[in-house]
Design a protein around this nucleic acid. Sequence first.
DNA 1: AATCGGTTAAACCAAACGGTTAAATTATCT
DNA 2: AGATAATTTAACCGTTTGGTTTAACCGATT
Lengths: 203, 203
Amino acid sequence: MTDISGSTEETILKVAREVFMQHGYDGTSMQMIADAAGINKSLLHYYYRSKEKLFAQIFSHVFRQFVPHLGEVFLSEMPLEQKIRVFTERYIDVFIQHPLIPIFVMQELSKNPQHLADLIRDAGLNPEIVKSRLQETLEKEDVMLKDPRQFMVNLLGLCIFPFAARPLIQRMLFDNDEVAYDAFLQQRKNEVAEFIINAIRKQ
Amino acid sequence: MTDISGSTEETILKVAREVFMQHGYDGTSMQMIADAAGINKSLLHYYYRSKEKLFAQIFSHVFRQFVPHLGEVFLSEMPLEQKIRVFTERYIDVFIQHPLIPIFVMQELSKNPQHLADLIRDAGLNPEIVKSRLQETLEKEDVMLKDPRQFMVNLLGLCIFPFAARPLIQRMLFDNDEVAYDAFLQQRKNEVAEFIINAIRKQ
DNA sequence: AATCGGTTAAACCAAACGGTTAAATTATCT
DNA sequence: AGATAATTTAACCGTTTGGTTTAACCGATT
């Protein structure tokens, strides 16, 4: 038994989440999950009828864990600079606590983008509204970068990439020193915000 | 037969590369590759003794295809601004031509980072030298950003992220319009360079 | 005509896969 | 005590996996 607290049903969900995130859908077998949870394979099907159903539930939950921040921050009434600072701080913190999310989500979405529309809707995010509100802001504050989509991709890329490419970057630039890389990620919460604010400031 | 030009041995390599990149190691079976190449499964083992060996060869080749650019540009004698412009242009072009590389490499490296040191060495890249040379440049040109590692991650993230997260971004910000997203990627070759140059300019 | 490498077909292997079933056991609650 | 739910055990299903083997076939070379 990996976990004694919480019901078995929840334990399965928690353990399956870890296994799926580390090995992906294809790389995970029901037996692996059962072993990791210290239970029998039959019990997995007893609670969640199939591998696909179990995975769908987990993926949807992971998705909801990081998508909504986008709307929350950029629909608020802060000035642009503050939005940038708050967002990078919050977003990078989410990934520091759940470092496997980026690569997991991108990996599975690239193989299986069909249900993406549903996932976004279920996460309670309306990209159109966020986009148009962001565009207003960019025009009102008279910054360098006018295209809200380029802005968004820059912001997300700077936050997410160091987690998705961690093995490569950590080896190439940090001599595989995990502690140093963790510190580097902490630094980035300020670094990214300042970088973006500088980049879009007119002069 | 998918391809009539070139030897069967090369055809296998080419086809296997596509299949592996699209479905990942775990998501690919030898039968899938044989079918895609229009040959018999036995022939795969005739040329490449095992799935692992075939994959290793392909992965190493893909790796060599995008890593060396880093050194080539940043060890050259251009001024920093030009390095940034040349690099973003070249790097984004590589991924426009091979859009599956980023997610494929990050996915497989996250599951299997053991041989990464060998891969980097075989690609003929010495990260230490690149890093120290870049640091000199950043100091000499007196820019805002002094840490070559933050600079590198920013640069790579801005170039690579829109390819790795394409399904998500395309759906969220482009209403799933592929043509529009392709145009967006072309735009980024300039956009990213100007963004970075602005961000590190002192004022 | 004989040889040789490339190629196919088909059968086969042991192992693992997702999934099901039935029965027994244990724990929980009324 | 009896009923109900959770859990285990183990066997089983059909399918697929990576991989091997054997025999035959084909086209070109010698």
